[in-house]
Write a protein that binds this DNA or RNA. Structure first.
Lengths: 190, 190
DNA sequence: GTTGCGACTTGACAGTGTCTACCAGCCGAA
DNA sequence: TTCGGCTGGTAGACACTGTCAAGTCGCAAC
């Protein structure tokens, strides 16, 4: 049990540390210190610092996938895509630490980590399938791809701009998100 | 002149280092080494590591603003917004190192650096003004804000997803960008 | 010709990631 | 019961980092 416990403790301490002082503040030794363990103990569960981050990213994508699926199933199918988009942005605002980690440049920069990749792909496929439903089976593939990208781009862009971009200072985020997404779904519905 | 020279050398070496091994690979001492100077010399021009990054971010926003303005003025006014959006995405693809740096979470996380902030705001205002032109002076402010956010969200989201997200493996980026942006402008034009 | 100053160097210090070596206890086989 | 190896942990060392503090050097102004 100690094994499982320490592994979780390390992950929990890590996300807390990142939340406090950014990815740069994530220190193997500080993590170990917080877990009340020697500075080398975490290495028994994670090959290196990048492995910890990768595990957190995987966690994050799993959480996101869950929320997207929940949103999809929470009402009439013809508005599922809309609900999923809203859930995407809400996830980013509710879990900024995870969300930021998930789209970290240097992570995709280094050679891909398979579990992380597939976790991301799974979340992607949820949105993709909703676009398919909306378009019907007879749509051109290029149109299908473009519409998927457009949908994801809107929600992803909105989320990151609100989190770390020029929209960070918007007063009422919820309302703004609603307005933007409504504007978008009206434009694309006809 | 040595002063100006070293300052530029430091910035050039820094961006090269970030390009090679990510923000984590940016090391004061390595930068100094590449500039052929003692490990403390850069401190004469930059208070700390964050100041170097801030300067690079400012450079990046200046470049982006230039491209947006050039795109705006490169054709008929009624399609200026479209051209600017395209220029935004192209900038991200052409200068990924700068672009990634510009929207670094931890930078906005720490207390804001005024020159950086205003450089970003300037780029933002270019897009904003194009939306204004499109909407005309009589539009409701909330609709104006929402449309600005939507436009920026699309191009920003598309750029980041292509750079570091699930669209990183798209085969023909140019074509994909064209399709997505055309789809978007068709949807919002009527 | 001295003084002052800006650009730069040298030296230190604490803190980091990670390599290597070691140790305790458990569990299954002989 | 003894033995051997695995699992999870410790301790120490190394090269490296950012940054503080104290020099040094050349040059311009008075």
């Amino acid at each position: 049990m100690a094994a499982e416990t320490l592994k979780q403790q390390v992950l929990d301490a890590s996300i807390a540390l990142v939340a406090e002082s950014g990815l740069a503040g994530l220190s193997m030794r500080e993590v170990a210190r917080r877990a009340g363990v020697s500075h080398q103990a975490p290495y028994h569960h994670f090959a290196d610092k990048a492995a910890i981050v990768a595990a957190l990213v995987e966690r994050g994508f799993a959480m996101l996938t869950l929320r997207l699926e929940a949103a999809r199933d929470a009402g009439p199918a013809e508005r599922a895509l809309e609900r999923a988009g809203r859930a995407y942005v809400h996830f980013a605002l509710a879990e900024p630490v995870y969300f930021r980690l998930m789209f970290r440049p240097e992570l995709s920069g280094t050679h891909p980590v398979p579990p992380t990749e597939s976790a991301g792909a799974k979340a992607f496929s949820v949105l993709q399938s909703l676009v398919d439903v909306r378009l019907g089976p007879r749509a051109r593939p290029s149109r299908r791809e473009a519409l998927t990208s457009l949908n994801w781009a809107v929600v992803h862009g909105l989320a990151t701009l609100l989190l770390d971009g020029p929209l960070a200072h918007v007063e009422d985020r919820e309302q703004h998100v609603d307005q933007v997404l409504r504007l978008f779904s009206e434009a694309t519905s006809d």
